[in-house]
């Protein structure tokens, strides 16, 4: 799906936990997530902390979308 969205001319960032799979699939902008059943959350945290964590990942995703890339790039902390 990532590739098809990219193909129509829309930049796309893939937020996912298993980065090697995303690389194989062919995503160009990749942001690592927390865990498979809760990529953008962590039930161990209290709700405020959890939302901050989610905000951090979304901000990273927006940063990825604002960054020119030529090759597949993983945006880590």
């Amino acid at each position: 799906m990532v590739k098809e969205i990219e193909r129509v001319g829309i930049p796309v960032v893939h937020v996912c936990t298993v980065v090697p799979i995303s690389m194989t699939v062919g995503a160009n902008r990749i942001v690592p997530a927390i865990a498979i059943p809760h990529p953008l959350g962590d039930p161990k945290l209290d709700p405020n902390e959890e939302k901050n964590l989610r905000r951090k990942i979304v901000n990273k995703a927006l940063e990825a979308l604002s960054t020119e890339v030529e090759l597949q790039t993983v945006f880590e902390d």
Partner: peptide
């Protein structure tokens, strides 16, 4: 998405 004028996509996977 393109026709609707979307500029960028965040795609999340589990």
């Amino acid at each position: 998405l393109k026709a609707d004028g979307v500029d960028a996509v965040i795609l999340t996977s589990t």
